[in-house]
Design a protein around this nucleic acid. Structure first.
Lengths: 231, 231
DNA sequence: TGTACATCAGTGAACGCGCGTTCACTGATGTAC
DNA sequence: TGTACATCAGTGAACGCGCGTTCACTGATGTAC
């Protein structure tokens, strides 16, 4: 009878676990004090190990930062995909408009629950850090989820696209195989930016003194975007 | 005959000049390496003085940061107000739609010309820094300029406001004396957030690999917003 | 106008802190015979 | 199954850096008589 973890040495298990603990400690630090406060030394301190030991797991601070960015994108992506999903269980067969609204609200809810992680993804770029290729796939989950809601249902009115923009949209449509007409893709991209603009303004304090509770404004704007998209 | 700078001692003049030079050095640092890189020591170094000397002018790093934020808001505010101005000279009497488009483009142009200063205003909040009252007035110049373009001309269609949102909008309208109906105020607020969402996405790299040149998308979205505002 | 005193600007050294990263090392885990 | 060697994890000290801020001080500018 092979052992329960066949092919998995104790070392491998320990390595996986400690790697996860390091990432978790890093996440806690970012959540508590923001991306700038992330430090390998603080992580090591929290885990009760020598700061040099962390280098067995992450060659560099930026490597840990990348892991955290991926994790944050995935957290946001999970939330939005779940909200956008037509679903198979109860709540299945929701209209595209309902799914759109739920997806946008999921963005806002996640951002409010994880403001520092939101800043990590959509705030100022961390100085000296260049996002590697690994962050791309997790990073496009939200826009793809929004596109999926709109696919086949959206009809966009308004100004026709100028040729350059149409060409860009075509190229995106081809490479990402999103299967959506250019005008719709453009409308979704703009709506996507709008949603994050609203959330960023709320989180970063631009609505302070005017729309202190930004919920109603957000809901109104999201409904407006849904109209615009013909949902 | 009184001297040209009556009531102004050499000391006062020197103080004003050096204060300005410190701010300028700080601005250069933010422009070069971002808000996080701002340091009083680096400023002192650039000016060839002892780091302790800077404390005669700014009691604290945050005080200098505040001055830089105000300066940046004013730079952006100048650009947008100029673009939004109906004007008295040539180009006077431009339509509200033209002024709207010009104002939005001014936001984007300024942001692209001053990415790090843009991040200072609209990126992640600087950790541990609480914006004091002094930044409020410069900070609202852009939204007020956008409102001024729309005042009297906008007619907003779309979903009616829910009561909570309407009440919020009324209160803002009253305290800021903007003289614009609630539905218009809300539409402008949402449009304002959209514009900054687009600019932030462009600057912070969210459009990388799709709309690498974000100009056409921006222009399209701004036209769309103008439609929405009835301009 | 000239002098005595008060105010202010700028210096240089220091305090205490935290960071990323490297390096030679000990000791434990895994592997091949 | 038992032993010999190789691999890997973790340690502790160190390097070199930069930061904000304070403090006692010198010397220049301003002010009151």
């Amino acid at each position: 009878v092979p052992p329960p973890n066949a092919g998995t040495t104790a070392r491998e298990r320990a390595r996986r676990e400690l790697t996860a603990e390091i990432v978790a400690a890093g996440r806690r630090q970012v959540a508590a004090s923001g991306p700038a406060a992330l430090s390998l030394r603080a992580v090591a301190r929290e885990l009760g190990m020598a700061s040099s030991a962390v280098y067995r797991y992450f060659a560099t601070r930026d490597e840990l930062l990348t892991a955290l960015i991926v994790e944050a994108y995935d957290g946001l992506g999970d939330a939005v995909e779940a909200a956008a999903d037509p679903g198979a269980g109860p709540g299945a067969g929701r209209s595209a408009r309902e799914r759109w609204t739920a997806a946008c609200s999921a963005v806002r809810d996640w951002a409010r629950a994880h403001p520092h992680e939101y800043a990590l993804l959509h705030g100022s770029p961390v100085p000296g850090y260049a996002a590697p290729q690994d962050t791309v796939a997790p990073g496009v989950r939200v826009p793809l989820a929004l596109l999926a809601v709109v696919r086949g249902r959206a009809s966009v009115s308004g100004t026709p696209l100028d040729p350059v923009l149409e060409a860009q949209a075509h190229q995106v449509s081809d490479t990402a195989a999103v299967g959506v007409p250019p005008a719709v893709l453009v409308a979704v991209a703009a709506a996507w930016a709008s949603v994050f603009g609203l959330v960023s303004f709320e989180l970063f304090g631009q609505f302070r003194g005017s729309f202190d509770d930004a919920g109603p404004l957000f809901a109104h704007a999201v409904a407006d975007l849904a109209d615009r998209l013909g949902l």
